[in-house]
Design a protein around this nucleic acid. Sequence first.
DNA 1: ATGAAAGCGCTAACAA
DNA 2: TTGTTAGCGCTTTCAT
Lengths: 344, 344
Amino acid sequence: MSKRITIKQIAAALHVSISTVSKALNDSYEISSETKRKIKEYAKKHKYKPNTLALSLQNKKTKTIGIIIPDILNHFFARVFSGIEKVATQKGYNMITCITNESYHKEVTTMEMLDNGSIDGFIACISEETLNLEKFEHFNRIIDNKTPLVLYDRVHKSIDCDKVVIDNIKSAYKATRYLMRYGCKNIAFISSIEGLNVGKFRAEGYKKALTKYGVKVDEKLTIRLTKKEELTNKINEMLDYKLVDGIFTVDESSAAIAIQVLNSRGLSVPDDVAIIGFTNGILSKHITPPLTTVNQFGTKIGEIAASRLIDKIEGKIDFDDNKTEIIRTELIERSSTKKAFIKF
Amino acid sequence: MSKRITIKQIAAALHVSISTVSKALNDSYEISSETKRKIKEYAKKHKYKPNTLALSLQNKKTKTIGIIIPDILNHFFARVFSGIEKVATQKGYNMITCITNESYHKEVTTMEMLDNGSIDGFIACISEETLNLEKFEHFNRIIDNKTPLVLYDRVHKSIDCDKVVIDNIKSAYKATRYLMRYGCKNIAFISSIEGLNVGKFRAEGYKKALTKYGVKVDEKLTIRLTKKEELTNKINEMLDYKLVDGIFTVDESSAAIAIQVLNSRGLSVPDDVAIIGFTNGILSKHITPPLTTVNQFGTKIGEIAASRLIDKIEGKIDFDDNKTEIIRTELIERSSTKKAFIKF
DNA sequence: ATGAAAGCGCTAACAA
DNA sequence: TTGTTAGCGCTTTCAT
């Protein structure tokens, strides 16, 4: 019914010029307070709202940022997203969201499409497929266009931009070390994200810890898959080969599956086997036993990424001044590593 | 570096008029194929991409929809979101997302802000606070502005628009009936979402089932909270009062918490107590024992909502032709209700 | 203190 | 077949 009103209509109604209205609404010193009053009053009465599109077209700023998320069902990404949204809202930015579902093609087309003035900058996480194809030209094109870009979580050295990540190697190292200090002699490694560089880094951290403490890496105790399908079988096979007393899984659901397999074999967590997971999601808190896990501070990652991007957009930071922020992780101790006795 | 090129620049470079370029690029029959060729070639070479903003300003269509989500960390909403995104992408729409965090104020301000031409329509889920305040004028204002609106999951009768929901009463009724048929004599009801109308409906369905089968409703067996904080205590109190043999929880984490409480009292699920949850999220599959649960088909809800909205936007459906789609639910049977013997 | 006019990038009705 | 012009809603010189 009420359909929005324009500056032009206000001008006509009040018998003044369009520019007078514009200036009045923007509190220009040029306009008499009396005219301002009248105009503002009329505007308010008729619920005048400036047309964002016209504004954006004018000043080449949309106050909108593009968010690229590989998989919104992943709780970690949902956390990052909520961090981004918090800062974006606070600073008056809207978000256009694209879920790539780990597809290279989707990633390329949406980013190309958005990078024509629709958004002021991107916050993106590289999709699995892109990572495997190692094709990053679309990101570099974005950068060439002088569109600010912040990459989070999964990054790549051939893209020169702001980055917000965690130290995967170190985090995995510490988790593994924790298990060793806890007394575990045979520690397995389980990953269902071998397709991601972060997955590989975590494997690296695991090996590094073992080596550092003089334990030989037994490849038969490392399960490195790119998806979850075969997981149950592989874990069973591994347990047939050797009965481990500690497991480090690189994602949450792998830990849940490991627990189920162990239980089905009559083994108890943590009494027979201690487990540490990665990513402190909903599962970690609620499975039985609650999972000791590496917390990634997803919300924090999102917040930092958004702040950085907006600072770039608003020129508070020079476009070429790129930085890689490493967000700390923490080990949250829960019952999956709570034996009554703790050897060394 | 390459900064985007405009139609005007193409025109200048090729010594033709702006409109010729525009027409050529849009494959107008008015332009000679030779000129078209030249123009398109030049455009491609210089990576011309039309400015969406200018287009939107022109034809008053943004090809963008606004998505209002109360809480993105809630897996059900993440599912709905992914359903929306699937259809939106497929039909060439972008999404501007707003997470209200259950806040009335956030909901009002974002929707007001977006409803000025920035988006072509809304898909929204009413926030908890809004529901409690019972203030829905902002939705009606949207509708008055002739902006298409589709509400999902949490709706209200005083807002006259398209809706996509589930039948909460019926779903709860069936879940409760399942427990009775399964042999449960004392069935408890646990809710931590009493602040939502959907929560109340589910309680209603529970009672309806009991009554229908001649079981008297014992209020002391119903726990109806608006948050999760006190849950563990309340469940313990309830179990002190009476040892139930069946529990119907209206959300997923309540079920997980109930299982933890039962286990801590030395009770086993499903042998001592059978449990059915609501919303088939990540938890349901992975907790021990896996949870029998009412699946809500979140993705489907999102898809239907998006299709409906886009049909409205594109005028395939009359603006005032509102419809409420009721998406069926299903009971997924898992181990939390798998006693060896089944009476009745 | 107010207004006319140009322009942001593009489309479309109308001329030529 | 091509070009001129006006206009989408708004800002911003530059007159007046």
